[in-house]
């Protein structure tokens, strides 16, 4: 099962990642009380998805269906959804959203994950594999946070406060 399901998982997770990027723009639309765009896009997506799946699945199987999910999110939501949203609502700088908010953290995370994949052992016992996964996840999150200024700054300030608190407590105990 692992052998057969992992290519599908890779593509589905990519599609879900693209869909997940739309979470914050969607909350912004809701906060403005503007739901029409999401409704229209979802109607079009459902109308397209079913016939496309009927065409793709018999020929390409599960991996074909997973790529349809990626195409829907990349083309429909990330391209058109973001374009129309940034045209109408407060945050007109859509390239800043694509660049600094999405591509930069995702690229740093990808670089860190690839480095871990090729540097760490990947065919070991289950326990070692779990340790590798936990270590990799930590590296990937740190890499993504370091290149995201609006996450790095408050996180750094919070960690500094924790360090100061611990040093203060240790000083008190001594």
């Amino acid at each position: 099962m692992t052998q057969d399901a992992s290519p599908i998982l890779r593509v589905l997770a990519f599609g879900t990642l693209l869909n997940g990027f739309m979470g914050i723009p969607y909350q912004m639309q809701l906060a403005y009380g503007w739901t029409k765009l999401t409704i229209k896009m979802n109607v079009v997506a459902v109308a397209l998805l079913v016939p496309i799946l009927f065409l793709v699945v018999p020929r390409y199987g599960g991996i074909g269906a997973a790529w349809v999910w990626v195409a829907l999110n990349a083309g429909g939501y990330l391209l058109f959804g973001i374009y129309f949203m940034h045209l109408r609502l407060c945050c007109r700088k859509k390239w800043r959203w694509y660049g600094r908010d999405v591509i930069v953290p995702a690229s740093a995370a990808l670089a860190a994950a690839l480095a871990c994949r090729y540097c760490l052992p990947n065919r070991a016992s289950t326990m070692i594999e779990i340790v590798v996964l936990v270590f990799t996840s930590a590296c990937v999150v740190i890499a993504a946070a370091l290149v995201s200024p609006l996450v790095r700054a408050p996180l750094g300030a919070h960690m500094l406060a924790v360090v100061k608190h611990v040093r203060f407590r240790l000083g008190q105990d001594a």
């Binding site: 990642l17 997940g20 990027f21 914050i24 908010d101 953290p105 995370a109 995201s148 996450v151």
Partner: peptide
């Protein structure tokens, strides 16, 4: 958006 990309993206 950046927090979402860091947490979910990673």
């Amino acid at each position: 958006a950046q927090l979402s990309a860091v947490v979910m993206g990673s």
